[in-house]
Design a protein around this nucleic acid. Structure first.
Lengths: 181, 181
DNA sequence: ATAACATACGGAGCGGTGCTCCGCTTGTCA
DNA sequence: TGACAAGCGGAGCACCGCTCCGTATGTTAT
């Protein structure tokens, strides 16, 4: 990659991060290019699709979550470990508003730029879940895909302005559907 | 209302119903006007906002649900009554793709065209929930707003193509968060 | 039947969107 | 210092929501 290209790439990414943080996953790409001081074509060359841009924004965090799941696997309380990982994952998933729907779509579309990171994250969660289930801490009528769906649902609810204040309540309610009492 | 106006109104509504059924709540208003064979201005006069259109599309169904809740209040099994109402409500809420977010927003905005119908539906659900709670069938750490949020979450999950096949599973999982075991 | 008027209509126009395509510039390396 | 691949910018296309206003038409009173 040419030096100027790399500079533009990095600058675009940082501007995009700010934009998506403020406007959500549907932020105007034209605006991002403009704010970066770069032509629209440049943005599209570096990030051919919106998903590619989101992927660049999220991959690092997702990898963190995968690592984190590994750490938590050595925790004593399997249930609390699962819950803690859930908490952190939901926090990441809703850091950028409206990012959950593309994630949900990407996980079953191998062509999507987001596919790999999502799958990795889901399998990490599935292992934590399986551990808690083997331990009797989590219900058995639930699998990794369900868990991922519930994360999406939680993030969706947090995205609704009228529900943000109840986010913790709702987390607790869904948690009671995952863990045994 | 003038005769031609009423004809246009009705025709618009039926075309809009088909469009929203196929394309979701974000269907192109221009397209709806075009397919109706009517100017864009005509559509906007009859339905000043997209919410007004959705309201016209949904009000009848919502009223049905409110009535249905009343019927179910005389059921013997308070838990099963709540569950059945939930099932039917989720079915309505996801009949039109993407309609849950505007609903969620409308319920706390008295100026929204959807406000009245949503509030009526929520209070109907709240009564069923309270009845099940008094009976010991439903958990106590949950209120009508939570219930409404969970309905939204279920509809959202159903809207995700990768999850539609698991809709019943997921319903069961969330149900276990509402009902006592 | 006709005249008058409120009501309703249609669509041009504005500023925005995603996305493509291509003539021009610029970094890089022989 | 040239040559050339690599990168750039933005005009242009088709769409979007929404407003505004000159024109047409249903309705009612005469």
């Amino acid at each position: 990659m040419r030096a100027d290209a790399k500079k533009n790439y990095d600058h675009l990414l940082s501007v995009a991060r700010a934009a998506v943080l403020k406007e959500g996953a549907g932020a105007s790409l034209r605006d991002i290019a403009r704010r970066t001081g770069v032509g629209l074509g440049t943005l599209y060359r570096h990030f051919p699709t919106r998903e590619a841009l989101l992927d660049a924004l999220l991959r690092a965090r997702f990898d963190q979550l995968t690592v984190r799941a590994g750490e938590l696997e050595s925790s004593d309380s399997t249930g609390e470990a699962l819950l803690e990982w859930l908490r952190e994952t939901v926090a990441v998933a809703q850091e950028y508003r409206g990012v959950t729907a593309p994630m949900m779509a990407a996980i079953e579309d191998p062509n999507s730029a987001l596919h790999a990171s999502c799958v990795a994250m889901r399998t990490a969660g599935t292992r934590l879940l399986a551990r808690a289930q083997a331990d009797g801490a989590a219900r058995n009528n639930i699998d990794g895909v369900d868990l991922f769906a519930l994360i999406g649902a939680l993030a969706w609810m947090r995205d609704q302005p009228s529900l943000t204040s109840r986010a913790d309540r709702l987390f607790g309610i869904l948690a009671s559907a995952i863990l045994r009492d």
